[in-house]
Amino acid sequence: MTVLTVAEHRRGELRDVSLELLTAGRELADATGGELHTAVVGGDVEAFAERLDREGVDAIHTVDEGEEFNHDVYTQVVHQLADAVDADLLVVPNSVNGLDYAPAVASRLDWPLVTDVVDLSYDDELTATRELYGSKVETTIDVHADRAAVTVRPAEWPAAEGTGDATVDAFDADVDESAVRSTVTGFEEVGGGEVDITDADVLVSVGRGIEEEENLNLIFDLAEALDATVSASRPLIDNGWLAKDRQVGQSGKVVTPDVYIAIGISGAVQHVAGMKGSDTIVAINTDPNAPIFDIADYGIQDDLFEVVPALIEEFQ
C-alpha cells in the first residue's frame, strides 16, 4: 500500500516527529510491498525536503503554501494530496497541530482515524495499538477498512536515518481561500519567569499526589535541604498552585538535570516527554503500577507524606 506521512514544522524548524513518521511509515510500506511518500506543507519546503530525504523514502511532495501551520490550508492540501498519490494510509503526528487537522482530513476522505498510536502492524488489515486510562492499559484496534488515517505518538519510533534518493516534486494544491476561516496572528512564549528549571542540576518535582496546596511547603523544604529547584507536573499549574515556569512536560519545559526526583507524579506520557533525558530519575509514589516507575532508575513505593519528611530529616 501507499503510505503518506505529513511532516510538521514550526517557526522554521522541522520537528523531530517528522522523521519518526518516516520509520513508522516505511515499516508499513515494507509489510505490504508499497511506497512511502511524505509531504511538507508551508515554510521553506525545499530545505525541509532535503532533511526528509532519508533512507526508504520514495517520494517527497512539497507544497509551497504559507509560512506556518494553518489547519484550513493543511486540511485541503493533505486531502487533495492523499487523493493525488492514491494513498492507502495517512500518517500524521499526534501533536497539537496534528490533532488540529487529521480528524478533518479523515472525515473528508471518509477514512477511519485512530489517534495517539504507539504501535502499528499490518497483516491483511491494519492493527493499531494505543493506551487507555492514562497508560494503565493498552488496547489493540483492528481497522476493517481499505484505507485509514492514524496519528502517531512522538518518540515511539526512532527517527529515520541515512540519505535517500526520493523524488521531490512540487504539488500544486488548489486552496480555496474562502474556506480559510481562521488566521494565525502570532506566537507567544509562555512561562518566562524568575525560575529557570532547565538550568537546575537537581529538580524536586511534584505532582497531583501532593493533594493540597498547603502541602507544597513540604516539597519546598526538601528542595531547600537538597539545594534543589522545585518543578511540577501539569495539574499543579492548572490549579494555579505553581507558576507556569515550573512546569515540566510536553506543553511546559524539557529538563535534563543530573537528578530528577518525581514526587507524587504518576508519569503520564506528556510529563515523561519533558524529563526522560534526566541522568538519574528517582520516583516516590504510592502506586507501584504508576508509569513513572517504568522510566525511574530508583523508586520508593510508599506514601510521600512519610518518605519526604524522613528524607528532609536525613539532610538536616
Binding site: 477511519p112 493498552e138 477498512a145 536525613e314
Partner: peptide, 30 residues
Amino acid sequence: PLEQTDLYEPESEGDATVFEGSAEETASEL
C-alpha cells in the same frame, strides 16, 4: 470500522531499583 480486539496491562519496561522497608529505611537509602 474500528474494532477493539484486545486489552491488557503493558509489560513494565522499568528496571528501577526499588528501595524496600519503612519510610525511614527507604529515605535513608535514598
